[in-house]
Simulated assay, not measured.
Amino acid sequence: MRLSAMNQRTLLKSAAVFLIAYLALLALSLQFGHRYVELLLPIYHWEIGWLTPDYRILSLGLQDNRGEEVIALNLQLMHYIVVEEHVLSPGGNISSSTLAGHALQDAVLMLSLLAAWPTRRFYKRLLLLAGAVPVLLLVEMLDIPLMLLGSMDDLILSRVAPDASSFLVYWMHFLDGGGRLALSIVGALLVVVFGRLWFSSPAMPRQNVL
């Protein structure tokens, strides 16, 4: 009974911390979210350039779309390519966009989960949040750039081969269908797992395990 009561208190405390952290981060994202996205744009630019060697990036940045802030991408085809037995000539431009809020959603949810994760020491929570940076970056790279490219792929295929699809199109639908939420949760869990492995390593005292 005592263990059950302790578990309930821990659960309620974690839920309360999650709610507070989520609301606080949401407020910060509304105020400073565009700056966060601007920091990610060079990474998005590099990734998209690496994934699309046949295209040249004409523009990638934040735009206002009817009152909503979006991340917009504009590519130009530089070489002849074949898509589903159709030859596409160089020179054509293609654009896509996605809500900037999607990038903010990844950060807000993942960091809120880590802020609420039960730990024995406050400094461990800070270490979890610090350790979340590279994992969060990975989540962002699996989200926005692939979402933009998936939207472009979908547009191209709808013109030349309406019945065809591609991995990027499937991934785009996965993200829109709840995959973005899943990525953030999995990212938070990975940070916790890495934290447990770190704190349980021979170099760390046993009492410091999460």
Rank of each mutant, 00 (worst) to 15 (best):
S59M: 11
S96Q: 07
L75D: 02
F122T: 08
L60Q: 06
N7H: 12
S4A: 10
A132C: 05
S184I: 13
H102D: 09
M152L: 14
R35H: 12
L142F: 13
L114H: 00
L39W: 04
L142D: 00
I185Q: 03
W171R: 04
I81C: 05
L181C: 01
V82Q: 15
F18G: 03
P134H: 10
H79Y: 10
E38M: 14
V108Q: 10
L99C: 05
L136M: 13
R159A: 14
S59T: 14
M152T: 00
H34R: 09
T119H: 08
R9I: 14
W46A: 01
Q76G: 06
R121A: 09
V37W: 07
E85P: 02
I43G: 02
A21N: 08
H79D: 07
Y36T: 11
F18M: 02
S165R: 06
S14E: 07
P42G: 08
D163R: 15
L104T: 08
S95I: 04
M1I: 11
L60F: 06
E68P: 07
Y55W: 15
W46L: 05
P118C: 12
G91P: 14
D176C: 04
R120A: 05
G187N: 02
L128K: 05
L77C: 01
A27I: 11
L126H: 07
L138D: 08
A115G: 00
V192Q: 03
V70R: 04
